[in-house]
């Protein structure tokens, strides 16, 4: 956390790009906590390698309108963290309530206008070669 805070202080500008994998979501199954390697960020067609198996080629597009990203967090956790000993009892009650009707907090993160649309690379041998090189 401290390291993150430190890096946050140093950040001047943040730019966001949406990586759209809708085109390949039917073809591949992305496991949780998969490793990724993103190369060619300084080119027009970046390459994304997921879990050393799938090689995706990206192409920049502009959005129609604006993409706004929202994150969701559970409110009970916040209350639990910030409450003193007396309020803990109330927190316990809220925990019970949240289990019945879980309430989430919505928070906007950013708005962006760039989309990187990915599609599967047709040559699988290249994938293996690239994977070996990565290793």
């Amino acid at each position: 956390m401290e390291a993150n805070a430190a890096s946050h202080d140093h950040e001047d500008q943040d730019e966001y790009v949406l990586l759209n994998l809708d085109g390949v979501s039917d073809l591949i199954d992305i496991p949780p906590n998969a490793k990724y390697v993103l190369t060619g960020l300084d080119t027009l067609n970046p390459v994304l390698i997921i879990d050393d198996k799938f090689k995706l080629i990206g192409e920049y597009e502009e959005t129609i309108g604006t993409c706004i990203a929202f994150t969701e967090q559970e409110a009970a956790v916040v209350h639990e963290e910030t409450g003193p000993s007396e309020v803990n009892i109330f927190s316990g009650t809220r925990l019970i309530d949240s289990s019945q009707a879980p309430t989430t907090q919505v928070k906007p993160v950013c708005q962006l206008h760039k989309v990187l649309k990915f599609k599967l690379s047709p040559d699988s041998e290249i994938q293996n070669v690239t994977a070996k090189e990565a290793k």
Binding site: E11, E15, Y16, L18, L19, N20, L21, D22
Partner: peptide, 10 residues
């Protein structure tokens, strides 16, 4: 199925 890529300058 989308990923959010964040680019920043330090």
């Amino acid at each position: 199925n989308s990923l959010l890529l964040k680019i920043s300058k330090t």
